[in-house]
Simulated scan of single mutants.
Amino acid sequence: MEEALNVLDLMEAQGMEPEPSLICILLKSCAEAENLEFGKTIHSRIVGTDLEKDVYVVNNLINLYAKCGCLEIARNVFDEMSNRNEVTWTTMISIYNQRGFLDESLKLYSLMKLDSRVRPNAFTYSIALNSCAKLRNLKMGVEIHEDVVKDRCESDEFIVTALIDMYSKCGSIDSARRVFNKAGEPTIAACTAMIDGYNNNNQAKEAMYLIRIILHSRLDMKMVRELGFVCMIRSCTMEAAYRQGQEIHAHIIKFGYDLGAQTCSTLVLLYEDCNKMVLARRLFDKLVDKNERLWGQMILGYVKNGMNSEALKLYVEMVSEDVKPSSFALSCALKACVGILGLKEGMEIQGRAVKVGCCLSDDSFVAALVMLYRQCKLPEEVQKITRIHKS
C-alpha cells in the first residue's frame, strides 16, 4: 500500500494524473482488506480531479466505504454523483439489502426507475425481490415482477429463483409455482427454492410430489446432489412420510452419496418420527463423525418412541467415547430418566452437566431435571433447583 502511495506521489509531482484503472485497482484492494485509512487517502487524492467524475472510480469508492461499514459516507458519495450507471444503482441497492435496510433498498430501486439514463439489470431485480421476500412485501414484489415482464427478462435464471423465493415467503405459493412452471427447465436453485417454499408454507405433500418428479427425471448425479437431500428429506419428515423418505434414501445410496452429519440427522429425524428406530440406529452407527447434536437427536428419538433404557445406553456410550455432551443431549438423557424413574442416573447426568459447564442456566435442562425430581417425589430438590435457576 505504501509503495502505491509513493507511485501516486511521484505521478503528482510530475504533473501526471493516474489512470482510472489504477485507482480502481487500488480501491478494490482497500475494500478487500477493509483498509479504510488508505482508501480515504486515495479518495483525497482524486478530489477536484477528473477522476472524481469517473463513474467506475466512484463505484469503487462506494463499495470501499460500504465494505468498511461507512454506509452514510457511501450514500453521500452516491448522492453527489452526477452520472450514475446501472452498477452504481445496483451496488447501492445491494449494500442496503445486505445491511438490513430493506425499505431503503426498495426506495432506491423506485428512484432508479425514475432515472431515464439507466434501467435495472437482472442482478438489480434479484436484489429488490430479495428485499421484498425478507419484508414479506407482496405488493412491491408484484410490481417488480411486472417490471421484469416489461423488460422481457423473466426467463433469467436468477430472476426466476428470486421470484419463486419472494412469492413463497410472501405466502403466495400458487404464484411461485406458476413462475416455476413457466421456467420450462428450471435450474437446481429454482427447484430448491420451490421445494423450500412448499415446506415453509406447510405444503410438504406438494414438495414431495415435486421431489419425485425431479428424482425420476434425467437430472445427472451432480445436479441431484446440488439440490440437496436434506431439503428433500425435510418434506418427508414434516409429513412423517416413511415410504417417500425411503425412496429418497434409496437414491442417496444409488448415487453413492456420502452421508454427512446434516443429512444423517435429517434421516434419523424422519425414521424416529415414523417409529423406525432400528433403521435410525443403523444409519447412526454407520456415520464415523458424529457431532453432539446428532447424539442428542438419537437419544431423543429413543425417548419419543418410549425406548428410555435404549436412550440411556446410548448416553453412556456417548460419555464412554469422550464426546462432550451438549445441553440438548443432557436434557434428552434426563427425559429418559423421567421415563424409567431413574433417580440415580438422573443425578449422575446432573453431576456431568455441572462438570461440562451446562449447569442450571439452560431452561430445557432445568425443566427436565425438575420433572425428574417431581416424578420421584422430591419437592425439596425441585424448590432448590428452581431457586438456583431464578437467581
Rank of each mutant, 00 (worst) to 15 (best):
K276A: 13
S320M: 15
I299Y: 06
A329W: 09
L287A: 07
F284P: 09
V278C: 03
L294Q: 11
H251M: 08
N305A: 10
G260W: 12
N275E: 14
K313P: 02
T266P: 01
V278P: 02
V303P: 14
L270T: 04
L300E: 03
L267H: 01
K324D: 02
W295E: 14
R281I: 02
H251E: 10
E317L: 01
D322L: 04
Y271S: 11
S265N: 11
I299L: 15
R281Q: 07
F284E: 06
N305V: 08
M277D: 13
L267N: 02
L300C: 13
K304N: 09
M307P: 02
A311W: 00
E272Y: 06
K254V: 00
F328Y: 13
P325I: 04
D322V: 08
N291P: 01
Y271M: 10
L269Q: 13
F328C: 15
K324P: 04
E272H: 15
F284G: 02
E310V: 11
A329I: 07
K290T: 05
A261Q: 03
F328W: 15
T263D: 03
A261L: 09
A311E: 00
R282I: 12
L259C: 07
G306K: 10
M277P: 01
Y315H: 14
G260H: 06
C274W: 00
E321L: 06
T266A: 00
I299H: 07
T263Q: 09
V303W: 07
G260D: 13
V278W: 05
K276M: 01
I299A: 11
D273F: 14
A250Y: 10
S331P: 10
G296W: 14
Y257S: 00
L270M: 00
L269I: 10
L283D: 08
E292D: 12
V268D: 00
K313I: 13
S309A: 05
F284W: 04
I253P: 06
R281P: 00
H249V: 15
R282Q: 12
N308S: 12
G306M: 03
R293C: 14
D285T: 03
I299P: 06
V303Q: 15
C274P: 02
K286E: 10
L314E: 03
M298L: 09
K254N: 00
G301L: 13
M277R: 00
E292M: 15
A261F: 01
L269S: 15
S331H: 06
L287E: 10
T263V: 13
V268L: 05
K254M: 09
L294W: 10
F255V: 07
L312F: 00
G256D: 04
N305R: 04
V303H: 05
I252C: 08
R293P: 05
A311C: 11
L283P: 14
K286V: 05
G301T: 04
A311G: 04
R282W: 14
T263A: 04
R281H: 05
C264S: 01
L269M: 07
E321R: 08
K254S: 09
S327F: 04
L267W: 00
L330T: 12
L300T: 13
R293M: 10
V288A: 11
D273V: 14
I252N: 05
D273E: 13
D285C: 11
G260E: 03
L270A: 12
L312T: 12
L314H: 03
S320T: 12
S309L: 01
T266C: 00
L279M: 06
S326R: 11
M318K: 08
N308V: 11
R281T: 09
N291F: 03
G296A: 15
E272L: 12
